[in-house]
Amino acid sequence: MPIQTKLTKLLNIKHPIIQGGMQWVGTAEMASAVSNAGGLGILTALTQPTPEALRAEINRCRKMTKNPFGVNLTILPSITPPPYAKYVSVIIEEGIKVVETAGNNPGEHVKRFKEAGIIVIHKCTAIRHAKSAQKMGVDLVSIDGFECAGHPGEDDITGLILLAKSAKALSIPYVASGGFGDGRGLAAALVLGAEGVNMGTRFMCTEEAPIHRSVKEAIVNATEKDTALMFRTLHNTARVFKNKVSLEVVKIEKKPGGASFDDIKDLVSGQRGKKVFENGDIDYGVWTAGQVCGIIDDIPSCKTLLERMVKDCETVLKEKHSLIVEDSPSAKL
């Protein structure tokens, strides 16, 4: 039996599960597989080297699924930033209905998306950021806890607190992100007030994920302790898989006097991370993974994963409903 929430109704999807934007992973193969399985697949705009390459990827994805899918656009500070406005133009011109935004100061882009009638989901790691996004006019926020892969912010607040507080602080719907990978987690997110979950690392460990099998097996064999936090001293914390390179970066950062980005830039090159996914050498570069590694123990198809999550979620919710009992006259004696 499907689980229907504000998220499924708004996005016209079967299951309240979103595949978040992932650099080098959010391709047409990944997004279409999730959408075909009943969730919302997401293409990662900046995985494509140019706006026109994104246009081609959108059209390729349309040939692979007839179901809704979206595009992620992450805005990050950079000396030579990508042409964000041109990526936005392509997204609008191609008639994309859902966009996931993340990163700093998305206001001007959100305005363009909303003027085009696009549903905007903005990823936030703090309640204050979620409130700002709400004022900006986004339709939903994705609340990203400290457990997440990638950039968890600098407050170190777990999803348990952020989600519960979101129920009090926000007037727009929200989804839960960071640490989710099974039906029990989906049930917990719904009980905490979320309308669904957003998953990254869990989708990396599926048959359709366009990354080397060795990377998927590394995640399966990992525990919740097998991630590392880089860039702490640079105030741009990133949670990545714990390997030789990420541990070396952390070691350099801990040297007396700290480290500058120039001291580690060659180690954290995005191209090295891309090669990990292509060649399967998990120690070649840094690559993102969340603490959810600790509950991932197989590599299913996206269809199997989503159906299992929803079924397990239903089971958990029904079991816990039995804890509620009516007061009886005899119980009061």
Rank of each mutant, 00 (worst) to 15 (best):
T5N: 00
L7D: 03
L10G: 08
L11H: 01
N12V: 07
H15L: 00
G20K: 10
G20L: 11
E29F: 11
E29V: 12
M30C: 06
A31F: 01
S35E: 04
N36T: 02
G41H: 08
G41S: 09
I42L: 01
Q48R: 06
P51L: 13
P51R: 14
P51W: 09
P51K: 15
A53G: 14
R55Q: 15
R55M: 13
E57I: 05
I58P: 07
R60H: 13
C61Q: 05
T65K: 03
P68A: 06
N72W: 05
T74L: 13
L76Q: 11
P77S: 06
S78T: 03
T80Y: 06
P83T: 04
Y84H: 15
Y84A: 14
A85E: 14
Y87W: 02
Y87Q: 01
S89Y: 10
S89V: 14
I91Y: 04
E100W: 01
T101C: 06
N104Y: 13
K111A: 15
K111W: 13
A116I: 11
A116M: 10
A116T: 12
I119D: 00
K123N: 02
C124T: 08
C124A: 10
C124H: 07
I127Y: 01
H129V: 10
H129W: 06
S132E: 15
G137Y: 05
V138Q: 07
D139P: 00
D139M: 00
L140C: 05
V141I: 11
D144S: 00
G145H: 01
E147L: 00
C148T: 04
A149G: 12
G150V: 04
P152N: 05
G153W: 07
E154G: 13
D155F: 14
D156S: 12
T158A: 07
L160F: 13
L162E: 06
L162M: 08
K168S: 15
K168F: 15
A169M: 11
S171E: 15
S171K: 15
G178D: 10
F180V: 00
G181C: 06
G185Y: 04
L186H: 13
V191I: 10
A194C: 03
E195Y: 01
V197M: 00
N198I: 14
M199I: 02
C205V: 04
C205Q: 02
E207H: 10
E207A: 10
H212C: 02
S214L: 09
S214I: 09
V215M: 04
V215R: 03
K216N: 11
A218P: 01
A222K: 08
T223N: 04
K225Y: 06
T227H: 03
T227F: 02
R232Q: 12
L234D: 09
L234F: 11
T237H: 10
F241S: 03
F241M: 07
K242W: 01
V245C: 03
S246T: 12
L247W: 09
L247N: 12
L247V: 09
E248R: 07
G257P: 14
D262M: 05
K265T: 03
V268M: 09
Q271G: 12
K275G: 08
N279K: 14
G280W: 07
Y284C: 01
W287S: 03
T288A: 13
Q291Y: 04
V292S: 12
C293D: 08
G294Q: 05
D297F: 04
I299S: 03
P300Q: 08
T304W: 04
D312M: 09
D312I: 07
E314P: 08
K320L: 13
I324P: 01
D327Y: 15
A331T: 06
